[in-house]
Structures are given as structure tokens and as C-alpha cells.
């Protein structure tokens, strides 16, 4: 049981990395990765929200939507849960944990439209995970996202000093960098635990 969960977590971080193999959460990945510090802040905020939202969406789906045969409403329900959860977490941190709020504050509203959060909630249901697996999957997928965005921000900070052709400056260069990192990450797909 514990080894299963550990393997699930390891594969969510490395083999099926949310950015490099599933393409979930690419907007913040490309948008908030100019400095390693802000990238880390964004990553931590995503870990925080995604772990909680995985637990809450699982509970809502299993105990509210399934008993009333409302499974087809899951997209609407999940996006509302995530939006209100983000708002709630923001208010809670603002009131009780101001240190954390100052660190994560500006990133929290951006997370509502981060498809990684909704994607994790939907994948939990699609893969039929139980409660513990869902939380573990949410946490480790977000950890994988953080790993990817921090590595990418580190590389991008160095690329600032490079001198590519004019039309490659900015986003095209960043995309190609991401492609090269993805190539490196695809090496992990050779790992097999069976």
C-alpha cells in the first residue's frame, strides 16, 4: 500500500511530469518563470492549493455528486470549488498567517485559471483514485510542477545574457528551452517499476 503510493508519487513527479509530459499548467509555467524566486513562490502556492483542492474535490464528487447522480456536473462543480477555495485560502492566510500570505499572496488569484489544478481534480476521478491516492497525486503533481518551473526559471535567467536571432528573442527561445528540458525529462519514461 505504502509502496504503491510512493511509486504513484514518484511517477507523478518525474515520469508523468505535469508540464513536460501532460502539458498541464503551461500558462504560469511560461508566464511566471522569469526569476527563480518568483517561480518558487508560484510553485509553493500551487502545491498548497492543489493538495487541498484534490482532497476537497474528491470529497465533493464522492459524497455529493455521485449519490445524486450528478456526475456530468463535475466540470462546473470543480471549477467553482477551486475558485472559491482559492478565495477562501487567500482570506484565511491574510488573516491568520500573514507571513505566508506575503510570500504567496500575488500568486494565489492566478491559480484559479491554472489548468493543472482542475486537471489534477479531473484526473483523480478519471483514474479512480481513493482519497489518500488523490491527495498524494495532487501533492506530488504540484511538486513536479514546482520542480519543472524552478529548473526552467534557472535556465531562463541564464538565457537572458544570450544573443539569439531577433525573432527568437523572448517566448520562442523560452519554448525551445522548455523543449530541450522536456527531452531530458523524457529520459525518465524509461523507468519502470513492474
Amino acid at each position: 500500500m505504502i509502496t504503491d503510493i510512493l511509486l504513484l508519487m514518484l511517477s507523478a513527479v518525474l515520469i508523468e511530469n505535469f508540464i513536460f509530459s501532460r502539458f498541464l499548467g503551461c500558462c504560469p509555467f511560461l508566464g511566471v518563470s522569469e526569476k527563480p524566486d518568483t517561480a518558487l513562490g508560484m510553485g509553493c502556492a500551487v502545491v498548497f492549493v492543489m493538495t487541498i483542492s484534490s482532497a476537497v474535490t474528491y470529497a465533493v464528487y464522492t459524497f455529493i455528486l455521485v449519490p445524486f447522480h450528478l456526475e456530468y456536473l463535475k466540470t462546473i462543480a470543480f471549477i467553482l470549488i477551486i475558485a472559491s477555495l482559492v478565495q477562501f485560502i487567500e482570506m484565511f492566510l491574510h488573516k491568520y498567517v500573514p507571513v505566508l500570505y506575503n510570500a504567496l499572496g500575488i500568486f494565489l488569484p492566478l491559480i484559479t485559471t491554472n489548468c493543472a489544478v482542475l486537471g489534477a481534480a479531473l484526473l483523480n476521478i478519471e483514474n479512480g483514485y481513493n482519497f489518500i491516492e488523490s491527495v498524494a497525486f495532487g501533492f506530488s503533481a504540484a511538486a513536479g510542477f514546482t520542480l519543472a518551473i524552478v529548473i526552467f526559471a534557472g535556465v531562463r535567467a541564464r538565457i537572458e545574457f544570450a544573443n539569439p536571432p531577433k525573432c527568437f528573442r523572448g517566448m520562442p527561445m523560452a519554448l525551445i528551452t522548455a523543449g530541450l528540458i522536456a527531452m531530458a525529462f523524457s529520459g525518465f519514461s524509461g523507468m519502470s517499476f513492474n
Binding site: 513536460f20 519554448l175 523543449g179 530541450l180 522536456a182 523524457s186
Partner: peptide
């Protein structure tokens, strides 16, 4: 594969 998506879009 995924890395090709990034490379193609970048180019």
C-alpha cells in the same frame, strides 16, 4: 513526443 511540441511551437 512532448518535447517536439515545445520545439515546433517555438520555431
Amino acid at each position: 513526443m512532448p518535447s517536439g511540441a515545445f520545439l515546433t511551437l517555438g520555431c
